[in-house]
Amino acid sequence: MILTLHRFWSSHGCLILQPYDMPMGAGTFHTATTLRALGPDPWNAAFVQPCRRPTDGRYGENPNRLQHYYQYQVILKPSPGDIQQLYLDSLTAIGVDPLLHDIRFVEDDWESPTLGAWGLGWEVWCDGMEVTQFTYFQQMGGFDCKPVAGELTYGLERLAMYIQGKDSVYDLDFNGRGVTYGDVFLENERQMSAWNFEHANTESLFDAFKKAVAECENCLDAKLPIPAYEQAIQASHVFNLLQARGVISVAERQAYMGRVRDLAKGSCQAWMEKNGWAA
């Protein structure tokens, strides 16, 4: 499936990239999306990104909620006029028959408070299940996107469940020779859920958050937007872990998100300046 998507998007002019090697909550955090969504230069890329969402862990007991899963991300800048049709063609390419399955574009205004970003678009439903997030970025890091990029984020496990007709993500056939997704990841989900929710050392997490903030500021002072942005990614993930541990109160939550947003915005601003782009 991934290879099919790579072939499809490559034939439509996308660079095929590899995952970013840091824990992050969504493919949108990849520099190929966040930073490249800024500025006037055309940019078309596709890549797989593993995502970690500590609070979504279900100890391996929910058939389609995981704390670690894979997104397939496509970014097309500027957004082509036929982007919806391209997307639907890609679904057909991986074996979703739109006259057998009910494909729908359902309103979903996307906003990332930690990236200072927003866009309009849809969640794409396949028989009632959200399989893709489809967004026209309007702002990133607080800056208007000029031009607007279209972002497609496929939920690979969910799509695979459709194509293979499985009720549970853990039953997915991984290799066609008897190895299932559960064989590969079920134990990870159990242990990581336990760690995320129960055992992660909150003191060292708070400490890690502080260090990431400090390091980000350090990089910004040195006018190094990419390393600064990596620290923002790190801070965001640590914040998510703290959330899963339930140690951040509602009142504090806003403040923490504000901190991460400031880091992301600062990195984006430094990126804009480095490239000589006006806001």
């Binding site: 500027p78 082509p80 006029g81 309009l120 026209y136 309007q138 000029k146 031009p147």
Partner: peptide, 11 residues
């Protein structure tokens, strides 16, 4: 809520 899109959204 409204949005911009495509090549024209350069501005």
């Amino acid at each position: 809520k409204s949005m911009r899109w495509g090549a024209a959204s350069q501005t």
